[in-house]
Amino acid sequence: MSKFQNEYCISVSNLKKQYSRNSSYVVNNITFNVKNGTVFGFLGPNGAGKTTTLKILTTILNPSSGSVYIFGKDLFKNQLEIKRRIGVVTQNPSYEANLTTERALDLYGMLWGIRDKKMRKGKVNEVLRTFELESIRNSKNDELSIGQRRRVQVAREFMHEMDLLFLDEPTVGLDPSARRQLLDYIKVHVKSGLTVFFTTHIMEEAEYLCNEIAIIDKGKIIAFDTPTGLKQKYGGGAKTIELTFKDTLDEFFMNLLKATINKKNSNKDSGNNRSKSYIDVNGKHTITITVNNVEEIISEILQIVSRHGLQIESIAINPPSLEEVFLSIVNDDNRNGE
């Protein structure tokens, strides 16, 4: 127990959830720990079990079995005490339709126990300034755009002090500048000791913010590491070739390219070393090829390009992004499950 208290903010062990006796497990025996003062990314495709796990951790749902310790305390025996120290931004919008932004923030502060009116007003002004909400201070929530409403919803959570913040896809609907602003604001709070449990579909965000990442699929955690660790472990030496052409790409060229890469990889697979390859077409001029054997394949690609009479504008070889690693992990899991 002392280890929990000292090191881990959240400790989940053998957690299972099924909605009815005959249904399959939505969360299937997952175990993980979240260190204090870090951002923990919980990623997974739609329906993987992310939100169900989050609902259990925020006391909305009871698990079928397993244990959850938050701040070293059993969540199900100390719900109220734990809830006083956490903040939650739910995936679904939540707002007081009839209130202005300012009044809604003030009321939220009051619900969180800030009784002193002056103190509340100061906090409201700080939050309005930090999240650039001053222009909609007097607008009713009902009148706001989806993005503005989301900003208020996230900003509202900073009206109170907390040790752990659950963010369920908090940047949905936010413009890039507001998104970056929020991530930076969270980073500042993490530096001063806040722990964040973060779910997102946007891998760049996870890479930018998270210290550790767990990938969940079909209710099970299929990968767990730091973003760099995941790339090293699951990137498997893969690299991405990004080719931009001056000419428009045609179907014949694409089919030829795919056939060549697949042939090269199948030759290698027979040598008991399974190779991964993905080809993405980005618009009419750019393709991204992810392969393990860049050195072997690049010359073949250039030969095809030359034979086809295409002119290359730029070529870049990069390590795989977290998104590519995520796709690779989830696709492998799907293949193994078949």
Binding site: T58, L80, K83, V88, T90, N92, P93, E96
Partner: peptide, 18 residues
């Protein structure tokens, strides 16, 4: 009904309220 529709029901339950 309004709290369910506007998401406030879930929000209040993740706060220190039962």
């Amino acid at each position: 009904w309004n709290d369910k529709r506007n998401g406030m029901f879930q929000q209040l339950l993740v706060m220190p309220f039962s």
